[in-house]
Design a protein around this nucleic acid. Sequence first.
DNA 1: GGTAAGCGCAACTTTCAGGTTGCACATATC
DNA 2: GATATGTGCAACCTGAAAGTTGCGCTTACC
Lengths: 106, 106
Amino acid sequence: MSKAEAAAPLFAALADPTRLALLERLADGAPRPIVALAAGRSLTRQAVTKHLAVLRGAGLVARRRAGRETIYALRPERLAEARAWLDEVGAQWNDALARLKAHVEG
Amino acid sequence: MSKAEAAAPLFAALADPTRLALLERLADGAPRPIVALAAGRSLTRQAVTKHLAVLRGAGLVARRRAGRETIYALRPERLAEARAWLDEVGAQWNDALARLKAHVEG
DNA sequence: GGTAAGCGCAACTTTCAGGTTGCACATATC
DNA sequence: GATATGTGCAACCTGAAAGTTGCGCTTACC
């Protein structure tokens, strides 16, 4: 159960299409300043800044100051943690199915 | 980008510790009525009902009526979709790293 | 038939996420 | 030095999520 409490904030950070799009952009390996990440999006720079703050709070991105701009980069380790939860639940389910099948087949 | 819009509601359904706990319980393969799912939790039955409605809206659980009780069961297919998004972003990141390494090593 | 169990629906409150606007501040640029 | 660029911070608005309570309906049980 405490696994649920640990994973929920992570999923919460992933629960917004804008944030997912930001992560997808950053997944190409190139760190970018906020302006570049906000470009093309129908949102204020401030809104994007807030989303990046949420992602950073979840440990999904890293921040670095370079002159007058703030560069954001992906931190894929945390993505793996979200995957781990999904894998566990899926595995438990598959085990349950296997046991059921074995029982039925006698 | 539209992948983000498709995956976000799914992650949103996973963004609550109570809902994750419900899914963990259901992952043992045994469908349960609402009362059984609400048992032990410090929540009203109504609250649990609402959470189950959210999970059902995201396609993560299935509902079935049996007499006076409503039985909920896990639907792991949708979990796989969430995993798929995480895999894609992770893969894109790894590719980017590989290209970078190849470029550096010349 | 009467009673208890299991749910669903609706109204209501409270909290918070997402978004905007306005302003101040530091850093490039000319 | 003057100006434009890139951010950060704070106040504010709005809508929705999470939770509760109350009531009514159906199904099981004796």
